[in-house]
């Protein structure tokens, strides 16, 4: 009986590995192509394995996409900072104070996540044009934050309501104000929720293509997503460097998954909202 069960679970694992393999094949195919010489990709049958591979594609990718990668880091980091600054105090207030309109505010935060990105791009273009912010980091950071802030408030508030009131009240008895309680009691306790919110803000901004391609008319602060897009348009033959850029652009996501897996899973299910 025990042996029978073990054989069965082993068989299930094999089946699961096959399923995951099939679903992740496109990613393997990206990595494989990124390691081939450009000419090796134009062969029939295709080269299934990067045997005798080359880093040629990566060299070219870093050469042409170095600047866009830096731009992406700046925009993503800026979005994380702005998102936390805006959402942490708001979440604290929404989880602690009984204020009129709090329900309406929460509803607004849910509702704005349904606004199609293209509508935001359309109107933010007019706004950024009026304020002279087109094609600046600020434009992209502000636009990307519209995706990250509502999500962050919902996640952070959901966590902060679970913090017992007594924790803050004890500090208040000692004369601390709300700002003090937030800073030295609530924020340290909410570390995980804040990491989750920050991770997602980073990923949203890093992956953004719509705002980057619309609010950036002369590509002055072109991030890597637009870099890849222009790259495919210009060099359809150099699939190895296109794929190498794709692999490089995927690194933050991969790192986040390895380093912060449980936070990512918490974000997916807890917030359950992705743009």
């Amino acid at each position: 009986m025990a042996v029978h069960t073990r054989v069965r679970t082993a068989f299930t694992t094999v089946a699961a590995v096959v399923i995951v393999g099939v679903l992740l094949f496109p990613l393997y195919w990206m990595v494989n192509a990124s390691l081939q010489p450009a000419t090796g990709l134009l062969e029939t049958p295709p080269r299934w394995f990067p045997v005798g591979g080359t880093l040629e594609g990566y060299r070219e990718a870093f050469q042409s996409q170095g600047r866009p990668l830096v731009n992406s880091v700046v925009v993503a980091a800026g979005t994380v900072a702005l998102t936390l600054v805006l959402s942490v105090p708001a979440s604290y207030a929404l989880s602690r104070f009984r204020v009129r309109g709090a329900g309406a505010l929460m509803f607004a935060l849910l509702l704005v996540q349904m606004v199609p990105g293209i509508v935001m791009a359309n109107s933010l273009y007019a706004v950024m044009n009026q304020t002279g912010l087109l094609s600046t980091y600020a434009a992209l950071i502000l636009a990307d934050s519209t995706v990250a802030v509502p999500f962050a408030v919902l996640i952070l508030r959901a966590f902060m309501v679970t913090i017992p009131d007594e924790l803050g009240e004890a500090a208040m008895v000692d004369g601390a104000g709300h700002a003090r309680v937030l800073w030295s009691v609530v924020i340290p306790v909410s570390r995980n929720a804040m990491i989750t919110a920050a991770l997602f803000a980073f990923l949203f901004a890093w992956a953004d293509f719509l705002f980057a391609v619309t609010l950036n008319s002369d590509d002055a602060v072109m991030p890597v997503t637009v870099g890849i897009y222009r790259f495919i348009g210009a060099h359809t033959a150099d699939w190895n460097s296109v794929m190498a850029t794709g692999v490089i652009a995927s690194v933050p996501a991969a790192i986040l998954l390895v380093v912060a897996q449980r936070y990512v899973a918490a974000g997916v299910t807890g917030g359950a909202l992705k743009d």
């Binding site: 995951v20 992740l24 496109p26 990206m30 794929m243 794709g246 991969a254 990512v264």
Partner: peptide, 16 residues
Amino acid sequence: LLLIPWLLPLVVSGTV
């Protein structure tokens, strides 16, 4: 591991 496709920038998935 199955989560990876969801975390990649959509531009990258599209390119692949």
